[in-house]
């Protein structure tokens, strides 16, 4: 296995994403407060925190689904704050959804072609179809290529989400709970895919509740609680941080999982 750089990012290292002071409100609810971090290229950043902590919202702000009330999102050196999701996609950002969103009446292949056609590389249909086949084989959906996406089961739909995102050949990939609901074998399979993607040079932020998995695969972890960053560091550092343990005590199930590490 490649040795991971455990040092916190410093000046000089190429940053693919800078999130600066991002704040997001929904009516009276403060979903994100002053979230700030830099992400060096080629790493996997784990984003954890109890349910409702604002993790998905942070993804939504990064990829332009919501504009933040304050703060900036700088992607590959460009200020993309308030830009539309498709503008970020064209710049090389791809994501999966926590609640899967397959294009039901299209085939699995067509779903992935959409990713390849309209993502960063802007392929024609024919090339996109080849890419789709490659990517679908890579995530293990090769056998379902001509089925309607709506007919897949949930595990397959999660893989489809992954395939669509990968087909865009992004620089940065946002994974929102891709392991949730999978059995241990499936988790291992997916983790393997994630590692390979990272080794292929794609930077990843992953939101995950399956602690052992996220701790094992991440280079760095950020912990959100009630929209605030309460801890940040290597998996080692974070898992020993008393604030993190406390945050998770509100969620006994997760606290227990964390203790088991």
């Amino acid at each position: 296995m490649v040795t991971k750089s455990l040092s916190t990012p410093t000046e000089g290292i190429a940053m693919i994403l800078n999130v600066q002071g991002v704040t997001k409100r929904f009516g009276g609810l403060q979903a994100l407060t002053n979230v700030t971090f830099d992400l060096p290229e080629g790493q996997i950043l784990g984003l954890i925190g109890p349910n409702g902590a604002g993790k998905t919202t942070l993804f939504n702000v990064i990829n332009g689904v919501y504009a933040p009330e304050a703060g900036q999102v700088i992607f590959r050196g460009r200020n993309m704050t308030g830009k539309k999701p498709y503008q970020l996609a064209k710049q090389g950002l791809a994501r999966t959804h926590q609640v899967v969103r397959p294009l039901n009446e299209l085939t699995v292949r067509e779903n992935v072609i959409v990713g390849a056609c309209f993502g960063r590389e802007n392929h024609r249909l024919k090339q996109a179809s080849k890419i789709a086949e490659e990517v679908l084989n890579f995530v293990g959906l090769g056998g379902k290529i001509d089925q309607l996406a709506g007919s897949l089961n949930i595990t397959e739909k999660k893989r489809l989400e992954m395939a669509r995102a990968l087909a865009a050949r992004p620089y940065l990939l946002l994974l929102d709970e891709v392991l949730a609901g999978l059995n241990p074998t499936e988790i291992e399979y997916m983790l393997n895919i994630i590692r390979q993607v990272r080794d292929g040079g794609i930077t990843i932020i992953m939101i995950e509740h399956v602690m052992r998995a996220v701790m094992g695969v991440s280079d760095r972890i950020i912990v959100l609680d009630y929209g605030k960053q309460i801890a940040e560091g290597t998996p080692q550092e974070v898992s020993q941080d008393p604030r993190v343990i406390e945050a998770y005590l509100g969620d006994p199930k997760l606290a227990k999982k964390l203790m088991e590490e």
């Binding site: 990829n63 689904v65 539309k84 999701p85 498709y86 996609a89 064209k90 791809a94 994501r95 959804h97 969103r101 397959p102 294009l103 039901n104 009446e105 299209l106 067509e110 072609i113 959409v114 990713g115 056609c117 309209f118 993502g119 960063r120 024609r124 249909l125 996109a128 669509r164 865009a168």
Partner: peptide, 25 residues
């Protein structure tokens, strides 16, 4: 049967998801 058409179909199926994939809806 064109790329443009596929974009339209993706909008029909789920416009928000299509935009996330880069479709300029």
């Amino acid at each position: 049967t064109s790329k443009f058409g596929l974009g339209l179909l993706s909008i029909r199926e789920d416009e928000d998801a299509a935009e996330v994939m880069g479709v300029i809806a």
